[in-house]
Design a protein around this nucleic acid. Structure first.
Ligand code: MN
Ligand code: MN
Ligand code: ZN
Ligand code: ZN
Lengths: 140, 140
DNA sequence: TTATAATTTGTAAGCAATACAACATTGTAA
DNA sequence: TTACAATGTTGTATTGCTTACAAATTATAA
């Protein structure tokens, strides 16, 4: 919580209640949250919370690199705190997003075929371990 | 053109005029086309063409693996013919999508951390070679 | 040809995301 | 403290991509 405030200070973003809550969500729930999920969680504590604020906050946070948007399905964006580079696994059955630690050579380069790289995104689609197990799976 | 018909036959999809045109678009323009782009191109020849048909066709083609949807921006999907595995580079300045040949170890595996892999997607975001060159760039 | 199935079309509806202006809060300077 | 500007939040309207659905058209089979 104090961490979050420091994070915002470092980027010269005023730590408002709404912004803090949004980041707290991402840090506690360990990311990959949709805007609506964040909105619904916070609304329980702050009934006046506006979804627009969630959108605005995440946009500005993404611009300064505090959070990163994850676009996989094309339906809705997800967000997570910007930590170390990693890939994602999207389960086509339960729609869960799972972190995949993977060292990709192209990370460091910063350039490929003459094109300047700012971001790198990698993700797999398939069926997650949990959904593969007959006893435990069949969540959907 | 005859190639395309064979492709559809192999998947037992009837090669209608609309379906052929859509695939011809993707093969001639070398992919990465939005639904709307395809729709506008074909509409010049077939004024009655429906955008719904473009959506329906691309969806069913994607299901059988003839085309693959490319989701990068979260705004609109793009499509390309399913060829060899490759990554993409998205230029944040001119919005162009460029093929990147890259051999990723995780292709073949078919599995990672116990999760079954069906698809792999990788893309870079940044500024393309063309937009980097001052004389030639500044397209936007 | 006639019946039946598959495909296409046009419109309505869904829904994430953005635009925008009113309202509220905070910071700054008298 | 008060006044005022700057910043942040909220609610609603609007946009734009995508899907749902039923009518119309076309292809296939009898
Ligand atoms: Mn992650
Ligand atoms: Mn490509
Ligand atoms: Zn799963
Ligand atoms: Zn470019």
């Amino acid at each position: 919580m104090e961490q979050i405030k420091k994070l915002l200070d470092s980027k010269q973003i005023r730590p408002t209640v709404q912004r803090m809550k949004i980041l707290k969500c991402l840090s506690e729930k360990k990311g990959h949250l949709t805007v609506d999920t964040i909105y619904e969680i916070i609304r329980k504590e702050i009934p006046t919370m506006s979804k627009t604020t969630v959108y605005n906050t995440l946009s500005s946070m993404a611009e300064v690199g505090i959070v990163v948007p994850i676009v996989i399905t094309g339906k809705e964006a997800r967000y997570e705190l910007n930590t170390v580079q990693h890939h994602h696994f999207f389960c086509e059955r339960c729609a869960k997003v799972i972190d995949i630690e993977v060292q990709c050579d192209h990370f460091c380069k910063g350039e490929i075929n003459g094109h300047k790289i700012n971001e790198l995104h990698g993700y797999f689609k398939g069926v997650c371990k949990n959904c593969l197990t007959p006893e435990k799976g069949r969540k959907l």
